[in-house]
């Protein structure tokens, strides 16, 4: 509470000075910023747009566009956010600001799960010699993009590049170790029906799958041995093959389901408990 009051007083003092500051444009800017800080994002955008409209000398083009982008981002409207960040980037007054805006675009891409795009922009930034000093930041956001893209091992490697004991490295490593291999689950079930289910801990389903496959396999083989070709084809096709295929599908489904649980636990932790910078 005390902290909140301190913060409020801080804002208050900043804005009081701002309110009496120089120009009309500056006042308009401060008002818009104030709305942004009070999380009135829709109205903040209106005021930033007003600022842009009356800003004949384009003094605020970069900042207003960038703030509009941030407002849209806060409303989870990432397509619009990116549109305005791109406008801001065009008007960016320095290389630093260009980089800053690019990172914002990357973060939006991560959040809207267009991670391919995020990774491509990151590669472009890395290839640009003017951002040679921003390596750590590029690796950090690439790590995030890879985590959202389910490539936990690669993500861990990126965080490791920044620092060996990077906390996100440990998290990504941990999740990577827990994840079941979908290919392995499927392959096991190809060889022994139900084995993939056992691998993912679904014992009842695995046992039942095995039982059905043994039964239908036995009946099919028996029919062929007894020269009842029609019966053999029918049971083999309609039942044995159906349950065999179902068994493989199930192994895959269980592996994916379990992985989703693990991944979601990880993502939940990252969103709620992790204290570093997030997209």
């Amino acid at each position: 509470m005390i902290f909140a009051i301190k913060r409020a007083t801080l804002f208050l003092s900043i804005f009081t000075t701002a309110a009496f500051s120089q120009t009309a444009l500056q006042q308009q800017h401060d008002y818009a910023i104030c709305l942004y800080n009070s999380e009135e994002y829709f109205d903040a955008i209106t005021e930033f747009k007003r600022l842009l409209f009356f800003d004949g000398k384009n003094e605020f083009t970069f900042e207003a566009n960038s703030m509009i982008g941030k407002s849209y981002k806060a409303g989870a409207k990432f397509d619009d956010a990116i549109r305005y960040f791109v406008l801001a980037q065009i008007a960016a007054p320095s290389k630093d600001k260009v980089f800053e805006t690019q990172i914002e675009i990357i973060r939006c891409n991560i959040l809207r799960r267009t991670t391919d795009r995020a990774l491509r922009i990151l590669s472009d930034l890395e290839a640009d010699p003017s951002f040679i000093n921003n390596k750590a930041e590029i690796n950090y956001w690439r790590g995030w993009a890879l985590m959202f893209d389910d490539r936990w091992k690669d993500a861990a490697a990126e965080f490791k590049k920044i620092e060996k004991a990077h906390p996100l490295n440990a998290i990504a490593e941990n999740i990577n170790e827990q994840i079941y291999s979908v290919t392995l689950a499927k392959s096991l079930s190809y060889i022994i029906p139900g084995a993939g289910q056992f691998y993912t801990g679904h014992y009842f389903s695995g046992a039942l799958s095995l039982a059905w496959n043994i039964l239908w396999g036995y009946l099919t083989v028996n029919a062929f041995i007894g020269n009842r070709i029609f019966d053999g084809l029918m049971v083999g096709n309609l039942l044995w093959f159906r349950f065999y295929r179902g068994n493989i599908q199930n192994a895959e489904k269980f592996a994916l389901e379990e992985n989703l649980k693990i991944i979601n636990n990880g993502l939940k932790y990252l969103q709620n408990e992790y204290n570093g910078e997030k997209p």
Partner: peptide
């Protein structure tokens, strides 16, 4: 915090 800022925004 937000209410106090918002209140201030209106004065602004």
């Amino acid at each position: 915090k937000i209410i106090s800022i918002l209140f201030f925004c209106y004065s602004l």
